[in-house]
Design a protein around this nucleic acid. Structure first.
Lengths: 222, 222
DNA sequence: TTGACTACCTAACGTCTGTTAGGTCAAGTC
DNA sequence: GACTTGACCTAACAGACGTTAGGTAGTCAA
C-alpha cells in the first residue's frame, strides 16, 4: 500500500535524523509548495491532487509516495503557514532595538504580518484562505498552531497596555480581532500592481493607533 | 429538458407580472434559504445539491424544476445577500434624524452591517463567505451588486470627510477596506453565545473613530 | 371525462474526485 | 551479475458530484 510507504518514509525521516545526505526530500517540498500556491489561489476543495501533481510534473498517484492523504498535505501547508508568519513577526520584534517604543513595535508587527501574508508566503496566505473550508480534523490540527500565534499578539497588546499606551477602556480581544481581520481580509482585495504591503500597513497602523476621526468635533466622542 | 422548464418558469414569473395569485413560488424561496444557510455554514463546493434538497425535503433532481443550475442558485443567493445588507444600511441611515451628526451615522452603518452579517441574514453571510470560491461567472455577476454596496460606504466616508470629521491625511479606500475587513472577518470568529453584534459593533466603532492608542505618549504619533 | 399543467420522483448519465494495487526502471549495494 | 530500493507510472476503483430524461400523482378547467 502506498499509505504504508508514505508512513515509513515519514517515520524514517523524522526519527532517523541524519537520514542519507540530510537531503530533505525535494519532491516533498515541491508538492507542498505547489499545494500552497494552488490552495492560496483557488481554495481547498477547488484544488485537486491532479492539479498539484501537474504543477510538480508528476502524476496524482505518485503524491501518495510522499503523503498519506490530501488532508495531510493541507495540514502541513497550514502548519508551515503559521510557522512562517509567527517566526517572521517574533523575529522582527526581537530584532528591534530596546529603544523602540511599544507603539512602534505594534507598527512592526502589523507590517511584518501583512508582508508575510501578501508577499512572502503562499503557505501563510493558504492557511488563512482555506482554514474555514478544510475538513474538521485538519482544522483542529491547525487550530493549535494558530493559538500559539495568537499568543504573540496577545502579549504584544498586553505589553502596550501595561506601558500605558492603550486606552484603558479598549477591549484587547476585539482590538486584536479588528487588527488581524483588517490584515487578513486584504487577501480579498490586494492588488500587487497597486500599493505595496508596506505602504498599506503604514496606513492601517495609523488608523488603529490614532483613529480615523478628528477629535473634538461635535459627535466625535461618545 | 428540465433546463427548458426552469427557463420557462423564470420567464413567466418575471414577465407575466401578476402570475396566478401573486404567490412567489414557495419552493423557489425555500431552496434559496436552504442554500444560503448551507453555503454560510460550509462553503460553496462543500455544499451539494443533494444537501440542499434534503433540507427542503425534496430530491436533488427536483431542484432543476426551479433553477437551471447550481450556479444560478449561488448567483441568486449572493445578489439577495447584498440586497439585504444594502437595504438595511441605507434604510437605517435614511431613518436617522437630520440632527444626527456624521460620526454617529458611521456608527449606525457599522452596527447595521454587522447585525445583518451575523444575525439577520444567511444570504449576506453566505455572500461574504463564498464570494472568493464561486465559479468566475457567478463571481462576476455578484461583483456588480457588490460595487453598488461599496458605493454606499464611499459616499458615507465622503460625507464624513466633507464635513471635516475625517483626518484629512487618511486614505478613504484603505479606511473603508479596514472597516469592512474588520466587520466581515467576524464571520471567522463570531460566537453567538458571547457578545452580541451590537456590543461588538460599538467597540469597533470606537477603535476606528478614536484609535486604540493614547495620544501624547512617547511614540504614539509619527 | 378528458387534457393540460404543476411539482415533484426515479434512475441513470458522464465526469471528477481521492485513493490504491501493482508494475517499471534507473541507481546503488553486496 | 544478482538484489534491493527509491521514485515514479499506469490503470483502475468506489463514491460523489452536477445534471438530465422520462415518468407519475394531484389539481383544475372545459
Amino acid at each position: 500500500m502506498a499509505t504504508d510507504r508514505a508512513a515509513k518514509r515519514a517515520a524514517n525521516e523524522e526519527a532517523g535524523g541524519s537520514s542519507d545526505r540530510g537531503r530533505p526530500d525535494n519532491a516533498h517540498a515541491l508538492i507542498l509548495a505547489a499545494a500552497a500556491r494552488l490552495f492560496r489561489e483557488r481554495g481547498y476543495a477547488e484544488t485537486s491532487l491532479r492539479d498539484i501533481a501537474a504543477v510538480v510534473g508528476i502524476k496524482a498517484g505518485s503524491i501518495y509516495y510522499h503523503f498519506a492523504s490530501k488532508e495531510e498535505i493541507a495540514t502541513e501547508v497550514m502548519n508551515e503557514g503559521i510557522r512562517v508568519v509567527s517566526d517572521a513577526v517574533t523575529g522582527a520584534l526581537t530584532a528591534l532595538p530596546r529603544s523602540v517604543k511599544p507603539p512602534d513595535r505594534l507598527r512592526c508587527a502589523i507590517d511584518t504580518h501583512l508582508s508575510a501574508l501578501l508577499e512572502a508566503s503562499d503557505f501563510t496566505s493558504a492557511h488563512i484562505r482555506i482554514y474555514g473550508y478544510v475538513p474538521a480534523e485538519v482544522r483542529k490540527a491547525a487550530a493549535k498552531a494558530r493559538a500559539g500565534y495568537d499568543g504573540v499578539w496577545k502579549s504584544l497588546l498586553d505589553e502596550l497596555a501595561s506601558s500605558g499606551h492603550i486606552r484603558p477602556e479598549t477591549d484587547h480581544t476585539l482590538l486584536r480581532l479588528a487588527i488581524l481581520g483588517t490584515l487578513n481580509w486584504s487577501l480579498e482585495w490586494y492588488d500587487a500592481e497597486a500599493r505595496s504591503p508596506r505602504e498599506i500597513a503604514a496606513v492601517f497602523f495609523d488608523i488603529f493607533a490614532r483613529g480615523a476621526l478628528v477629535p473634538g468635533r461635535p459627535g466625535a466622542h461618545r
